[in-house]
Simulated scan of single mutants.
Amino acid sequence: MHIGLLTDTFARETRFGLSRYSHEIHGSLSAAGVRTTPMSAVSAYGDEEPDWLRATGFRRLPIDRKLLAGTWSLVPWPPIERWAPDVDLVHALDTDYPLATNKPWVITFHDLGVLTHPAWFGKARPWLLKRCVAAAVDRAAAIICVSQATADEFLGITGGRGAERVRVIHEGVGEEFFLPATAADIAALPATVTDTPFFLFTGSISPRKNLLRVLEAFAEVADRIPHRLVMTGAPGWDASPEMAAVSQGPLRDRIVNLGYVSDAALKALYGRASAFVYPSLYEGFGLPVLEAMAAGCPVITSNQAPLTEVAGDAALLVDPTNVRDIAQAMLSAATDEAQMKALRAAGVDQARRFSWAECGRRTREVYAEILGA
């Protein structure tokens, strides 16, 4: 079995979100002895590919990504096997455009927010994803959705077409998040997050992440607790209001914006935070919730799918549109140690239900079903 992996995120310098998924699928296939060829028209490295990338068998497609996506959205040519003629199947791991191939095609949909909530995806191109969904219904051998919520979105958009080929395969959480942070990683944290208790907010900053309401909620309780609010992640599209509120708001001296941090630093932050605050307005899955739980951090998240699908009963669930609801949960996290101790234990148990090994195993089952292997 030789699997071609089409990905826009594999050759990144940093791994989070879609990039983490692409690497975990590649890693699980390789560990199971499945031959893979990661392919992409996108690379952060140009012609100077690092050793780790070359070792994966990565193949850079000699065509601009925008041109490739636009062409494949209009005509199924040139087929991707022109650059990988011996693959048995091609899996599009994280792309939002159709694939031209004469081989069996599997596609993973992480979310369909560009179509269902376009106001939160201002720089996206809905027509491209519409073409991708239509092509998947017509031609894909299997359609993997990372949550039931995403599967429901897909079937809602297609009117139920393709339902017999939809497979819900949850993402997982890396085993490294269950391990305690090292003393060196904790010591490397800045003093602003080690000398005072804090809440943690992570992720690319954009309207759907709901940071403005988190800031309002923090302001409601700040005079009753000593906590800071620590943020990690880079600004996404249209983050100007959020960044202005962080840098110019009345509580700016109690907000620490660390930007992008490594997995090791993130795990150390999870381990020290009073709670991970993640009342997102929209997600396709919600991987940060699992990572926080695995690291033993109490979680405050939205009472909407798929975050309820991921968190189960192991988090404080809040109405993400209700500032007072978020504020009350933050106050509980800061003051009710017995409740937080219970949430830490429940969160670890919940995170154990989601593993990349299981994600990879079920993905291989899809390939085997298609190829008769």
Rank of each mutant, 00 (worst) to 15 (best):
D96G: 11
P62A: 06
G286C: 05
G296T: 05
P250R: 13
D195A: 08
R35C: 06
I205D: 02
S280D: 12
R213P: 05
R60I: 06
R324S: 15
L331T: 01
Y260F: 15
G236Q: 05
N322M: 02
Y282A: 13
A151R: 14
D138G: 11
L18I: 03
G113E: 00
P126I: 10
R139G: 10
E220D: 13
K267H: 03
M231A: 05
R353Y: 00
A234R: 15
V168F: 01
R35M: 13
A311V: 02
R20Y: 03
P190G: 06
P50T: 03
L5K: 02
S30E: 12
R362M: 05
N210V: 08
V87D: 04
T202G: 08
A315V: 10
V193A: 01
S147R: 11
A69I: 08
R272W: 09
Q350K: 13
E220L: 15
G296V: 03
A187M: 03
W120F: 15
V318F: 12
I144F: 07
T95N: 13
L89R: 00
M340D: 08
Y278Q: 07
T9I: 01
V277R: 12
G259K: 10
G4A: 15
T308R: 14
T71M: 14
C297E: 07
D96H: 13
T9V: 01
H26C: 08
D238G: 09
K341I: 05
G286F: 01
P241E: 01
M1H: 09
V106M: 02
A264Q: 14
F285H: 05
R12V: 00
I3V: 15
L331R: 13
D313Y: 11
L269H: 09
